[in-house]
């Protein structure tokens, strides 16, 4: 069965948004039962060295867990480059 997650790209990673996605940060992405975060990164051709903050359903995903963590239907996966403010 095909499932889908929401991927969100922020800050300079917005340049990797699908072309028709100009107004929002999020878009649907189809996955299979055993798709991992690493596979989504590959499928979207995101630059690994530029993925500084990765949140899975709002919770920080440690770099060493990113490749192997499996995704579930309706998960929200958000990406930022290195950012800061105050």
């Amino acid at each position: 069965m095909t499932e889908k997650i929401t991927v969100k790209l922020f800050a300079s990673l917005m340049r990797y948004l699908p072309v028709n996605n100009t107004k929002s940060h999020g878009f649907d992405h189809a996955i299979h039962a055993d798709t991992t975060v690493g596979q989504v990164i590959d499928a979207l051709q995101l630059p690994r060295e530029g993925l500084h903050i990765v949140l899975l359903n709002g919770v920080y995903l440690e770099p060493e867990l990113r490749e192997s963590t499996p995704l579930n239907d309706a998960d929200v996966l958000s990406f930022w480059p290195a950012v800061a403010g105050g």
Partner: peptide, 25 residues
């Protein structure tokens, strides 16, 4: 040479935090 001070802050300013802090609840 630092991505935060060279790119993040000039482009989006401190307001880059709005989505980060909200997404993490």
């Amino acid at each position: 040479g630092n991505p935060v001070t060279a790119e993040g802050m000039p482009t989006l300013g401190t307001q880059v935090l709005m989505n980060v802090i909200n997404e993490m609840g």
